[in-house]
C-alpha cells in the first residue's frame, strides 16, 4: 500500500497517518505538536499539506491507498512560515537568553523554513516563570501550547500535572495545584512530561549548558535531517 508525497511513493501500514508513514520512509514534514509516542492531535498546524487538493494536517490524516500529498509546494511552505511567525509573535521567544537554544524545535523549524522575522507586531504577553520546583523550571513565555507535556503527564505519568486553561489568545498552561505552583505538584524528575517539551518551557535545572551553544542538535544539522536520520 502506498500514497504519494511530492511525487514519491510512500509505503504505509494500516493505522499510520501521513506524517508517520512519511517519516518512516525518510521524508521530513515540518511539525511541532506531533510526537511519535503520542496520539496526534493536530493543533500547531505546521504539518499542513495538500491532501488530494485540500489542505489538511498530515499528522491526523490517515494514510490511504493512492492519496496524493503535496508538502514542499510554495503555497504550503508559505502557510508553515506564517504559522511559525504566529507562534513567535504570540509568545516571548528571546532565543539568546534561552538555554534550550540550539535544541529548540520551534527555532529549528524556523531555520528550516527560512523564517528571519516574526513579521507581525509581537504581542509581548505577560506570562509567568515558575521556579518553585527544586529540579524543574517552568517558563511559559516560551510555551507554544503543543500539549505534549499535557498528554505525557496524563497518558504516561498518570498525573495530569499539566493542563490548559483559558481560551483563544489567553489560553495558557496550568499545573495541578491550587497554589498554581509547580513545586506543589507531584511532578517527579522521572516523569515523561519533562522530556517532551519541543521548546524551552519545561527545563531541568542545572543541566542547561552541558553542551555549549553552537554545538547543539540543530546547530550541526537541519531538523529535516536530524528527524529522519537521528543517529547520524
Amino acid at each position: 500500500m502506498t500514497f504519494t508525497l511530492d511525487g514519491h511513493d510512500i509505503p504505509f501500514e494500516p493505522g499510520q497517518t501521513v506524517v508517520q508513514a512519511a517519516l518512516a520512509a525518510g521524508h521530513y514534514i515540518p511539525h511541532l505538536c506531533y510526537h511519535p509516542e503520542f496520539q496526534p492531535h493536530g493543533s500547531c498546524k505546521v504539518c499542513t499539506c495538500t491532501v488530494n487538493g485540500r489542505t489538511a494536517t498530515s499528522c491526523t490524516t490517515p494514510a490511504s491507498e493512492g492519496l496524493e500529498v503535496a508538502s514542499e509546494t510554495p503555497e504550503i511552505q508559505e502557510i508553515r512560515r506564517d504559522l511559525v511567525q504566529f507562534l513567535f509573535t504570540e509568545g516571548n521567544h528571546f532565543c539568546p537568553s534561552c538555554e534550550q537554544s540550539g535544541d529548540c524545535m520551534l527555532q529549528a523549524v524556523g531555520y528550516e523554513l527560512g523564517v528571519v522575522t516574526g513579521h507581525y507586531n509581537p504581542l509581548f504577553p505577560n506570562r509567568p516563570v515558575d521556579a518553585s520546583h527544586p529540579d524543574v523550571l517552568l517558563d511559559t513565555n516560551r510555551c507554544i501550547l503543543c500539549e505534549l507535556c499535557v498528554r505525557a503527564s496524563a497518558q504516561i505519568d498518570g498525573k495530569s500535572i499539566f493542563a490548559l486553561s483559558g481560551r483563544g489568545i489567553t489560553k495558557h498552561l496550568i499545573v495541578n495545584a491550587e497554589s498554581g505552583r509547580l513545586g506543589d505538584t507531584q511532578l517527579a524528575t522521572t516523569d515523561k512530561a519533562l522530556d517532551v517539551c519541543p521548546v524551552g518551557a519545561i527545563l531541568r535545572k542545572r543541566t542547561g549548558f552541558r553542551v555549549p551553544i553552537g554545538r547543539r542538535t540543530y546547530d550541526a544539522r537541519p531538523i529535516s535531517q536530524v528527524t529522519v536520520e537521528p543517529a547520524k
Binding site: N92, F94, P96, T117, P122
Partner: peptide
C-alpha cells in the same frame, strides 16, 4: 535592514516588557 535579534523582536531589553 533590521540587523540582529534586538532590532527584530526587541531582544533581551524587551524582557522588561512585562
Amino acid at each position: 535592514v533590521a540587523m540582529g535579534a534586538c532590532a527584530i523582536n526587541g531582544g533581551l531589553p524587551a524582557q522588561r516588557n512585562h
